[in-house]
């Protein structure tokens, strides 16, 4: 599996994403600068977490207009897998690649803690090594992860099996609608989620339940 991790100004989980991919797949991903016009020919594009453009204006808003996004939009349309984690999820919604938006946490504060998630959909490139209903623990670390979309959009996401992860009952850290933590696009090749699977790949850090996501991709895309 060939991967690229996009580096925006003030991405800060780019190295973590690099290391997790390297760790699970054995191959280092290419680091691609946001100002480039083209992503190399890869099977997976990762938009990492961070504070692109300082989260100024709105989280992800300015990164969504980076030069590289034109090519990412095109490749996503062609079916290349795209994974947006945290700020990467925010960028994907701002870029229109995923529906809805991420608003300020309901508690108004940044929240960093491990949270329990329920895998709501295992029929995807990203989640095929999980079973539906499986509980996994990923850390969250964000101030604006409160998923919002109209009821119509939410109904449709649920009806089409596009809610990949939900916060377990009582664990919702940010007020997200219907406990949604991560969603797929219509073609199911784009996943955005607020929790960090790349921070859950090392037993020393308390959880390895993120590995299955990268393994799912590795098996499917290699």
């Amino acid at each position: 599996m060939k991967c690229a991790v996009i580096v925006f100004p003030a991405s800060n989980c780019d190295r973590d994403a690099h290391d997790a991919i390297m760790h699970v797949t054995g191959t280092p991903p290419q680091m691609v600068w946001h100002g480039d016009s083209e992503v190399p020919d890869v099977d997976l594009i990762v938009l990492p977490g961070g504070f692109s453009y300082g989260d100024y204006l709105r989280c992800g808003a300015m990164a969504a207009h980076s030069r590289i996004m034109t090519d990412i939009r095109r490749k996503a349309g062609e079916g290349v897998a795209v994974l947006g984690i945290c700020n990467g999820f925010q960028i994907l919604t701002e870029a229109g690649l995923l529906p809805g938006t991420l608003m300020r946490n309901a508690g108004l504060k940044f929240v960093c803690r491990p949270v329990e998630l329920v895998v709501d959909e295992s029929q995807s490139l990203f989640t095929r090594n999980y079973s539906r209903g499986e509980r996994v623990t990923f850390p969250v670390a964000h101030g604006e992860g409160n998923y919002f979309a109209s009821d119509d959009v939410l109904d449709r996401l649920e009806a089409e099996g596009r809610v990949a992860f939900r916060y377990a009952e009582g664990e919702n850290p940010n007020g997200s609608a219907r406990n949604i933590a991560g969603i797929l696009n219509e073609k199911r090749n784009v996943l955005g989620l607020m929790p960090h699977p790349e921070r859950a790949c090392d037993p020393l850090l308390g959880s390895v339940s993120g590995r299955a996501m990268f393994q799912s991709l590795l098996e499917k895309l290699s």
Binding site: L57, R58, A61, H65, T93, E94, G100, T101, M103, F148
Partner: peptide, 9 residues
């Protein structure tokens, strides 16, 4: 439309 506002919300 393009940047200053997120017309979803």
């Amino acid at each position: 439309e393009k940047l200053l506002a997120n017309t979803v919300i």
